[in-house]
Design a protein around this nucleic acid. Structure first.
Lengths: 77, 77, 77, 77
DNA sequence: GCTCCGCTTCCCGTTC
DNA sequence: GAACGGGAAGCGGAGC
């Protein structure tokens, strides 16, 4: 390996590390918000489910829920 | 549920959504950097491994590698 | 490393490999069943959800669903 | 939903549950083997790495290791 | 269609 | 002994 290649590798690695650190910081922030919510009596797990549902098409979600009800009845739930 | 609780839930959900969006943006940035590296002839997969190794204690990594060599020999690798 | 250690390592590795293969076979079987169900017009994703629900305590599931409804209303879903 | 559909759903769900149970049993067996190995002084984590390596093409693994060494030197590892 | 990445879940170690 | 948090494995979805 020549020097230029090594320099490039170092550069790429450092750029990625910086971004990964930022990502980790944000993950920590999300965790903090969920903890805060929990401290005020809300359920973090359900909050995450709601966030996911809001990212999805409403019709799809409705259809899926309707189907699930049918299947649940079929197995006695 | 009273109005205050609903407001709190909305607030928590929106804060999480904002953070999740930021996280996604950074993930996209990382992907871009890896693509750029690939375009210059480097292996994105190996770059990621290097980033992970740099996050770990050197002695731990060295020990693990030494042990792995022993085990590999034991099974004929 | 002495010979005995190497033998032990080989033995452990082979035992694990055998078990992993069996596990993979069963995963394939599950996938086949889901495919068959899909072929008869059922939704594999919903079937898996039902299986998971049946593994959980009914009261927990009911409580979680009730809570989710509340949160959904709070954010206008 | 008619009775036949409900019967089919029940049947599919039960078949999947049976298979999932078998899979879980095997996972437990694997865990036992790793525990046993640990009890005799071997490192479970490394054993799992060896199992994974044995599943891969030797040339690929060798190439990857060679490349990794180059990159590690480039960043001073 | 396949690989690869991110998410979810599970398991373990720690702490109270 | 139970709950909590961190880490690893398995699964589903996205991107090539």
């Amino acid at each position: 390996m020549n020097n230029t290649s090594a320099d490039q590798i170092r550069s790429f690695v450092e750029r990625i590390e910086t971004l990964e650190q930022q990502k980790k910081d944000i993950s920590d922030d999300i965790r903090s918000v969920l903890q805060e919510a929990k401290g005020e009596g809300f359920d973090p797990k359900i909050l995450k489910i709601v966030v996911r549902l809001r990212n999805r098409n409403k019709d799809d979600v409705d259809n899926e829920e309707a189907l699930l009800e049918l299947y649940k009845e079929a197995v006695g739930l």
